[in-house]
């Protein structure tokens, strides 16, 4: 099989507006789903809604009706706790009925609290214990390179999990093996359970760290879908090194009382009143979010 580069399609203004609106719908469904579940993480999923929307509705070569299609691009999730954004986006993309979203974290559900690959076709990997996903993605990209496959491997990961040593083992491996078919996407939202990353275990200078490890490093505004799509295109045009996209995001994006607030990392709206307050913001802004209106 020839190693053909599959382009990221160009993004028209019209498509961009559609994606932004879609991301907002996905945020609303995330909040509904989390409130029903009664436990889970709010900030990360809201912060990554734009990127997941762009991945499933523009960047990835995939087929929701054939989740095990051999030529699909692989999307790994390393910080499994943001699974709600993936589940909702997959539901919008047709991998599962939207009605199933209410089963999140419930007994017998395919939507486990942390994603289990075998439960829901299309998930690719099992994750949750932080740090493991980047290695799994690197292994898959290595195998793809061995086989001369045309598909690309992506891995979404958090900034907090970069504190885990295994991440840097995987970084050495990806660089040493010139895994140009691998793109890591870091949700750089600066929070983790116990507070701000730079207080807990400073990660900066992150760009320079990855550059020193031999990565092609791109920094973007993680809420600017066009920047993200362009970064994915650049990643595919890189032939010698793996790419890391450091996506600066706002945890809790779109709901002002959740934004930048570590307390919202690991909890959900506690009741209908809190949920409605959040939904109202998302609806009235019609896809534009509070921090951009200031």
């Amino acid at each position: 099989m020839p190693a053909v580069r599959r382009e990221v399609p160009s993004l028209t203004e019209k498509k961009l507006l559609t994606l932004e609106a879609k991301a907002n719908e996905i945020r609303e469904d995330i909040l509904r789903m989390l409130t029903t579940a009664g436990s889970g993480h709010s900030a990360g999923p809201l912060g990554m809604a734009d990127i997941f929307t762009a991945l499933y509705f523009h960047v990835l070569h995939h087929n929701a009706k054939k989740p095990t299609w051999a030529e699909r691009d692989r999307l790994f999730l390393s910080n499994g706790h943001i699974a709600p954004v993936r589940y909702v986006t997959m539901a919008h993309a047709g991998y599962l009925p939207k009605s199933e979203l209410t089963t999140l974290r419930k007994f017998g559900s395919r939507l486990q609290g942390h994603p289990e690959a075998r439960m829901l076709p299309g998930l690719e990997n099992t994750s949750g214990p932080l740090g493991d996903g980047s290695s799994q993605a690197a292994g898959t990209a290595y195998a793809a390179k061995m086989d001369g496959a045309a598909w690309h491997t992506y891995c979404v990961m958090s900034d907090g999990e970069l504190e885990a040593g295994i991440t840097w083992e995987a970084a050495l491996f990806a660089s040493r093996n010139h895994l140009h078919n691998l793109t890591w996407i870091i949700d750089r939202n600066n929070i983790q359970i116990d507070g701000y990353t730079e207080d807990i275990m400073p990660l900066e200078p992150l760009h320079e760290k990855f550059a020193a490890f031999g990565f092609h490093v791109i920094e973007i505004d993680g809420h600017n879908i066009r920047e993200f799509v362009d970064a994915c295109d650049l990643a595919k045009a890189t032939f010698e090194a793996p790419t890391v996209i450091i996506a600066h995001t706002i945890p809790g994006k779109g709901v002002d009382f959740m934004e930048f607030e570590p307390a919202w990392h690991g909890k959900t709206p506690k009741d209908k009143t809190e949920l409605n307050a959040a939904l109202r913001q998302l609806r009235t802004l019609g896809g534009k979010i509070a921090s951009e209106m200031d």
């Binding site: 692989r74 790994f76 690959a117 690719e124 990997n125 493991d132 290695s135 799994q136 993605a137 690197a138 292994g139 898959t140 990209a141 290595y142 195998a143 793809a144 086989d147 295994i166 083992e169 995987a170 491996f173």
Partner: peptide
């Protein structure tokens, strides 16, 4: 990463 990278290869 030996274990997790191998898991990724097995997935492929």
């Amino acid at each position: 990463s030996l274990a997790a990278i191998a898991a990724g290869m097995a997935l492929a």
